[in-house]
Design a binder for these strands. Structure first.
Length: 372
RNA sequence: GCCUCCGUGGUCGAGUGGGAAGACGCCUGCCUGCAACGCAGGAGAUCACCGGUUCGAAUCCGGUCGGGGGCUCCA
């Protein structure tokens, strides 16, 4: 099987051992699951299905960021406790994912469950000399890490521009370098806090994923996934602090899902240009929602439009009419092994169905159950 | 979809209007017990495709196809 690796910048062989360890960044549960989320997790779902089809066992961790600036802000606006807000949204998210037929995560840990791990992890980074304390915060010392940039391949100016647009932290006077990032930070008066050696506070943005990946899967994981909007700074920082803490390679293969767009812009919570899975479920068969996503290649950004769902529903009807059988299965497998070419696999199944062959097996490989 | 960069012998890659460098790989010879290394020589490119400008296009312009990056946030 071959997959594009963000860090290597090309399609490379993906040849994990019998057990494949995967970590995909999950959601911050302060708003409903939208189609972009679904597209991302469906990509890793189809990847796992093909890996299992090839005889591997897969362990995919998907974390939940239940303490974070956005979540705390939204809870403050709504006047509810942040964990109550999170619990409701986690339930909706899990409901959406289950409805779409995703293989359950091997583990779905929450950031607040990992405070002890996070504190220990920060201690490891400090002990190895790659972090420093200042003003009640602990910062990662980017200047001590010459491999910073090996995931995203941005140059320093690009990194600074991206970091600066994220809310002014580059001007933090406690930082030795504007690109340094927070591992631990003091909480605002109305925010949750935990005791630590560096004073009461809460985790920085990136640290939970490093601590959880280490706790759940060990020092080196086979594949790390997430949306392409996480490449920088999130994954760059995650990689740096993980390798700084353990001294071992963190990730063998970086795989990123391209953004789904709408009205010419990224579909995102902050812009409000969203298509919610929960809304789509009211009108469409969940199998058609899955098909709508995987009819696009994970590495190609694409734009939502009103033809997406009718097209997918029509395809599902055609496959249902074709019924059980192994039509298109070999072609679908070959397509998935070629950089997870789900559009190619879908096209192969379309062709088999059009030729009058049953396609139940190939559809099942893509997670579409025609017997339901 | 939009913006942007790119597409040169098997591979990598220089070359921005006038002789298609170089590296690796490959072939032959010398060297060697045989090889490798080294040395000498050699083969291999209608410069993605179509059209245009020009005396002349890899190079400029338009289009097509293919690829990278971005489209700003936390999928």
């Amino acid at each position: 099987m071959r997959l594009y690796c963000t860090s290597k910048g090309e399609v490379v062989p993906f040849e994990p051992g019998e057990v494949v360890t995967m970590y995909t960044c999950g959601i911050t549960p302060y708003d409903a699951t939208h189609f972009g989320h679904a597209a991302t997790y469906l990509t890793y779902d189809v990847l796992q299905r093909r890996l299992r089809d090839r005889g591997h066992d897969t362990k995919c961790v998907r974390n939940i960021t239940d303490v974070d600036d956005d979540l705390l802000r939204k809870a403050r606006e709504l006047g509810v406790h942040y964990l109550d807000l999170a619990a409701g949204e986690i339930a909706r998210f899990d409901g959406d994912m289950e409805a779409l037929g995703l293989i359950p995560s091997w583990s779905e840990p929450r950031a607040t469950s990992a405070i002890a791990d996070i504190r220990g992890f920060i201690g490891m980074v400090l002990d190895r000399g790659h972090a420093y304390t200042a003003g009640g915060s602990v910062y990662f010392d980017v200047g001590s890490w010459d491999r910073f940039g090996e995931v995203s391949h941005y140059d320093r100016d690009e990194m600074l521009a991206f970091a600066a647009e994220r809310g002014g932290n580059v001007d933090d006077p406690n930082k030795r370098d504007p690109l340094d990032f927070v591992l631990w930070q003091p909480s605002a008066p109305d925010e949750p806090f935990w005791e630590s050696l560096w004073g009461p506070g809460r985790p920085g943005w990136h640290i939970e994923c490093s601590a959880l990946a280490l706790r759940e899967l060990g020092t080196t994981i086979d594949l790390h996934g997430g949306g392409s909007d996480l490449i920088f700074p999130h994954h760059e920082c995650e990689s740096a602090q993980s390798e700084a803490a353990t001294g071992e390679p963190f990730v063998r293969h970086w795989m990123h899902q391209a953004m789904v767009r709408m009205d010419g812009e990224k579909m995102s919570k902050s812009l409000g240009n969203l298509v919610f899975v929960s809304e789509l479920r009211k009108e469409w068969d969940t199998r058609a929602i899955r098909l709508a996503a995987i009819a696009h290649h994970y590495r190609t950004p694409w734009e939502w439009d009103d033809e997406i769902m009718p097209t997918a529903a029509g395809r599902l009807d055609a496959w249902l009419a074709a019924g059980p059988g192994d039509g298109g299965l070999a072609e679908a497998r070959a397509a998935l092994d070629d950089d997870l070419d789900t559009p190619g696999a879908v096209a192969a199944i379309d062709a088999a169905a059009a030729a009058g062959r049953g396609v139940g097996d190939a559809a099942a490989l893509l997670g579409v159950d025609l017997t339901a």
